[in-house]
């Protein structure tokens, strides 16, 4: 059986953990084994964080360079940073919204999120087989909540068939079990939001 290797990356505090837990729960309900690893500790205070998620048989929760089938990026510069994990022709689903580190503001070295997304686009068809860029400001305005970015990105991955054997219905089922009923509708809308 093959393993689906997924990297979730972002900035400490962006909540990558729920997305990986939902995917794990969905995989388990299909009888698949899952391993994942999270960044916990100092880096959670605004540093770069990276989660590994592996669906299928494997021994380590960690993923080597060039071995990830999918990168889900919560911040465009962090997505670019994680690219060395991507295997040739892999999928990248990313938010376009840049989070400026304090150092960038201090040194006047602010970067543009668009520079990162342009770079990603330049790799499409080569390293990146499929690229989905989500306009986060618009998504959050349309959905009316700043808290569901993770579901927008995860929904795109599931509907695109990039989570291996795990599909969008599996994710929804897992979500119903994990999230309070009053938030179901919002989260479902978020899962269906991004066009792929």
């Amino acid at each position: 059986m093959s393993t689906t290797n997924i990297i979730l990356c972002g900035v400490g505090g962006q909540g990558t953990v729920l997305a990986s837990k939902l995917t794990a729960a969905a995989s388990m309900s299909k009888g698949l084994s899952v391993r994942s690893a999270e960044t916990i500790g100092m880096a959670q205070r605004g540093g770069s964080v990276l989660s590994y998620l592996r669906i299928g048989t494997c021994s380590s929760p960690l993923i080597g360079s060039g071995c990830a089938d999918l990168i889900i990026g919560f911040e465009p510069a962090e997505t670019v940073r994680a690219l060395s994990y991507l295997k040739q022709g892999g999928t990248v689903i990313t938010s376009d919204r840049a989070m400026m580190p304090v150092t960038a503001a201090l040194q006047g070295s602010a970067y543009e999120g668009s520079k990162m997304t342009d770079y990603l686009k330049s790799l499409e068809g080569g390293l990146i087989g499929k690229l989905v860029i989500v306009n986060t400001d618009k998504a959050l305005a349309d959905l009316g909540s700043a808290k569901v970015m993770n579901m927008v990105l995860l929904g795109a991955a599931a509907r695109g068939g990039f989570l291996g054997e795990v599909g969008i219905e599996d994710i929804k089922e897992a979500l119903v079990k994990k999230v309070k009923p009053q938030f179901h509708e919002l989260n479902f809308k978020a899962l269906e939001y991004a066009s792929i």
Partner: peptide, 20 residues
């Protein structure tokens, strides 16, 4: 060892942890 291509990544921000 599998060869890895060098990528021309744009300069990435350093992101040290900071007080909230």
């Amino acid at each position: 060892l599998p060869s890895c291509e060098k990528m021309n990544t744009p300069e990435l921000p350093v992101r040290p942890p900071v007080l909230c």
